[in-house]
């Protein structure tokens, strides 16, 4: 399948990140929350790797761990796109990490908070350039103009401030910033969730175009399955910090195999007749329903059995290109 055609770009192994849960007068620690829990996956060169799940499941944390904006508690991030041996990004010091920073960038969800309102578009888009090596002003400007052309913004707008732009245009500026260093990997954290439907289509097209033109590898985070299906080659479903299903797009959308994936399908707006599926509104996440020893999805699962309470399933291949973390070999209905 794909694996033979495309070389590996990135291999994530047992990535873990936990946060302290605090409360009380002196912020006493009351426990930890595992935002990302033993996550492993492989991203191939030039593919768009989709990460879905409801909010709070750890998608953003995963993305930021990969870019080393957050320090993981454990695990490895192997970077293959490198002459010689793959490099473990988690073992690099901040200084050694610097050359790799130019090769990996991020696109943010919120087009407002992701641009510093006090900087001009030139300063914003040029920031990754200046963080690298010294660069003559002439070349600096030319490259910014290039990047703006990429995202279909007029280079004349370089001297304006972000408040002059609409949400969609701001998102383009954010994309220009991410692409100016010609990175190999881009983590796009819900880049279209905050946009209007018509603008969403423009941005999705743009991302797709740029991805194939620059042969980008992209980790595309979203909570909307329709968007994921449109743009991603591989789909990974995340639930409470763990991956529950990773599959090629066609396999995933034909036969999702995890009960949680099925629930995501149910939630796609306009797909099912809402009046028909009553079970949704009653089932939702709360701390009380977690099942510590068994499957994390236990309380919401329609297919659960006694085994699920005792034992946690691990992510394993059920067919080529399809990995699921469920005790049962389910074949659920996709679209």
């Amino acid at each position: 399948m794909f694996a033979e055609e495309k070389s590996i770009q990135l291999k994530i192994e047992h990535l873990t990140k936990s946060y302290a849960l605090k409360s009380g007068f002196f912020d006493r620690q009351k426990g930890t929350i595992k935002a990302v829990d033993d996550v492993s996956f492989t991203v191939r060169n030039g593919e768009i790797f989709g990460l879905v799940g409801e909010s709070g499941c750890g998608k953003t944390t995963t993305g930021r761990l990969i870019l080393r904006v957050l320090e993981p508690n454990g695990g490895d991030i192997m970077w293959y796109n490198n002459p010689g041996e793959p490099v473990n990004l988690c073992r690099l010091s901040n200084k050694k990490m610097r050359p790799f920073r130019q090769k990996m960038q991020m696109i943010f969800q919120d087009p407002y908070s992701s641009l510093d309102p006090r900087m001009t578009v030139m300063q914003i888009v040029g920031e990754p350039l200046r963080a690298g090596r010294k660069i003559p002003m002439r070349e600096y400007k030319a490259r910014i103009a290039d990047a703006l052309n990429f995202v279909r913004l007029h280079p004349e707008m370089m001297n304006r401030y972000p408040h002059a732009f609409s949400g969609g245009q701001r998102q383009r500026i954010g994309i220009a910033r991410a692409l100016i260093t010609k990175p190999d990997l881009v983590v796009a954290d819900e880049p279209v969730s905050a946009l209007d439907v018509s603008v969403q289509a423009q941005i999705l097209n743009l991302l797709q175009e740029l991805q194939s033109a620059l042969n980008l590898t992209m980790i595309f985070i979203a909570h909307d399955l329709s968007v994921i299906r449109h743009i991603c080659d591989t789909v990974a479903v995340m639930y409470l910090g763990r991956l529950v299903e990773v599959a090629d797009r066609t396999l995933f959308f034909q036969t999702p195999r995890h009960p949680y994936s099925e629930m995501l399908f149910d939630a796609v707006p306009g797909l099912k007749n809402r009046k028909a599926n009553e079970h949704m509104s009653k089932n939702f996440m709360n701390d009380e329903t977690l099942c510590p020893s068994g499957c994390l999805f236990f309380s919401r699962c329609r297919y659960k059995q006694a085994l699920c309470r005792e034992q946690a399933p691990t992510l394993k291949a059920v067919s080529p290109g399809h990995n699921v973390a469920c005790h049962f070999d389910l074949e659920l209905k996709g679209i």
């Binding site: 943010f108 510093d116 963080a131």
Partner: peptide
């Protein structure tokens, strides 16, 4: 703020 994260990603 996201723009601070963006600056970190950029290697600033």
């Amino acid at each position: 703020e996201d723009f601070v994260v963006a600056a970190k990603v950029a290697g600033t």
